[in-house]
């Protein structure tokens, strides 16, 4: 099952500047982990040391936060778009 990850600017430095990256996986978690395996520099930005997803990144499958589905166990059919939405802080300076 191949899905497309939409990479926000804040993380693009770790995907060679790519806006979109495809990865295989039968669940959101599996696809994310395969994606991180292809771009090892992004790993610390996605996962805590213990392997949980970092709390400043939200993962949306289509328009739905996977928190409202089955989290990283949410199954994939293939062809979905997964959007990573990190906290960004800029605004004043």
């Amino acid at each position: 099952m191949s899905v497309t990850f939409h990479i926000p600017t804040a993380l693009r430095a770790f995907t060679d500047g790519k806006r979109e990256v495809t990865a295989e996986g039968s669940t959101v978690g599996e696809a994310l982990s395969n994606f991180a395996a292809s771009y090892p520099d992004i790993r610390p930005h996605l996962y805590e040391d213990g392997g949980e997803l970092r709390s400043f990144i939200n993962v949306f499958l289509g328009d739905t936060n996977v928190k409202n589905l089955d989290g990283l166990s949410t199954p994939l059919r293939g062809g979905e778009v997964i959007t990573l939405v990190p906290a960004i802080a800029g605004g004043a300076s």
């Binding site: 610390p44 930005h45 400043f56 906290a87 300076s93």
Partner: peptide, 12 residues
């Protein structure tokens, strides 16, 4: 976002 990124993980 229950907690922020570790300092500077996202540049200012």
């Amino acid at each position: 976002y229950p907690a922020p990124p570790p300092p500077g993980l996202v540049p200012s």
